[in-house]
Design a protein around this nucleic acid. Structure first.
Lengths: 254, 254
DNA sequence: CCTAACTCCGTATGCCTTACGGTATTTGGT
DNA sequence: ACCAAATACCGTAAGGCATACGGAGTTAGG
């Protein structure tokens, strides 16, 4: 990636700060970059990232396909801009309560966001775009545990841990929701269709533990999985583990 | 999804158990389903899932594109079969040591696997295929914590937690490795190109905490991120948190 | 008032999956 | 021994995608 591309990318990301460097010669653009980004978000919200295409963005704006490329250099770039745009949606409310409550808010915000914009989980960012909203968010997330007693390194690792885990849980939950919706068949119905076949294929003797655990979980969840509950379980364990780190005594306030 | 499709899907998955129901009339197939699956894995290993195509699988076997469809009903199905095939690669060694060590082995096995077959992280399984190797693995993973004092429900949630977290960490690590390899530019070089631009865009006063933390982390990691280290950090926290759950006293052996 | 710069778009290239129909091959049944 | 059914393999085409390129129309600076 050339230096010029870096500039092009970043100047779109930070267009609020830099202003839009509109050359003044030719005709004015019919839309703004922001409108293109918002149209992109709408398409992705409705159809998911695999079905997201430049043509659909263009159609939504009443432009023809290739005109989109005068606003944005490529599909990947547009997606990067969409991501940072979305990062700016939730208000970064001042932190309150102890660090456990604060981290819970941080995690819950991400969880909600992944449900509002499931395509975020499908973005493959080769190199992370550094945009204004993402940067503000990262600052806010770190602020949640500032002064709790972590070292700088641990702060970085802690937010990464919370984010990674929340993303993975949300991914499972969103996948389950989407499948249920698309196939028009509930988890339970699916199971009822497959169970007889699987019972023939999987002798209980070969799966003593998963058989027992699966039955218990199925009865308790009233479904094959309950991702929301797994998320709460995991988050509590992680918070407990962080507390152990903080109270293990070997730690002078850095 | 019709009942017949369920059968078709599952009978391919469990072909070892069921035998291949080869009608005996026409010409024999030149290859086996297993060879197709292995060719698919080779393609995915080399080029990743986005570049994975039926044509490449066919080319690798010396078949023409459409012939693949006589072995496997669709691309998605083939990917499902590839996943279960890969799940059978590592040996499920008998568990030894305490539950912490065992869970570490479980997590490390997944971590390694995601690095051996990074495309696993790109698979969007709408409904999870239940195959023999995946089932055996799940049984083995649960066995790692059998008798440690968890309830059945907690066993399910614990393995899910370890798996989710490991997947997310591996995703970050693999993405970083791939980017470094593809762009031929290291994290550090990328930073050196971008830093001057970003310094202009991001006034330090607006990012006091992330500035400080980022500097510390950068010096310590000798890179922007160190996913391997974040993985070890997160895993330790999670294991600590699970230990809290087990030793909190409120727990009669279920 | 002319021309440089710019927007918008038509066309083309080269990918992808998969539906469909044709042809060659093998074998069970007669 | 021969025919017909079943099957594997493949050619073609439809309908999708990103994006390179060049042309036509529009605007404003000099």
């Amino acid at each position: 990636m050339e230096n010029r591309d870096v500039d092009r990318t970043l100047s779109l990301m930070w267009r609020r700060v830099l202003g839009t460097p509109q050359g003044s010669r030719g005709p004015k653009q019919r839309f703004s970059v922001d409108e293109v980004i918002r149209a992109g978000i709408a398409v992705a919200d409705e159809e998911g990232l695999p079905a997201f295409s430049m043509r659909k963005v263009a159609d939504r704006l009443g432009l023809k396909l290739m005109s989109i490329y005068t606003y944005v250099p490529s599909r990947d770039e547009l997606i990067g801009l969409m991501v940072d745009e979305v990062m700016g949606e939730p208000e970064l409310t001042p932190h309150a309560g102890d660090w456990r409550e604060r981290l819970t808010v941080v995690a819950r915000q991400m969880w909600d966001e992944f449900h509002r914009h499931p395509w975020l989980l499908q973005v493959e960012q080769s190199r992370p775009w550094i945009g204004p909203n993402g940067s503000d968010r990262w600052e806010w997330q770190l602020a949640a545990i500032e002064g709790a007693g972590f070292t700088d390194l641990e702060m970085d690792q802690t937010i990464t841990l919370i984010g990674d885990f929340t993303g993975a849980s949300a991914r499972a939950d969103v996948a389950a929701l989407r499948t249920a919706e698309q196939s028009g068949i509930t988890d339970l119905e699916w199971w009822e269709v497959n169970a007889p076949v699987l019972e023939r294929l999987m002798p209980p003797a070969a799966y003593p533990i998963s058989g027992r655990v699966g039955t218990t979980a199925g009865e308790e969840y009233n479904a094959v999985r309950d991702s929301e509950r797994s998320f709460r379980f995991g988050l509590e364990r992680i918070l407990d583990g962080l507390e152990v780190l903080l109270t293990s005594g070997r730690r002078p306030r850095s």
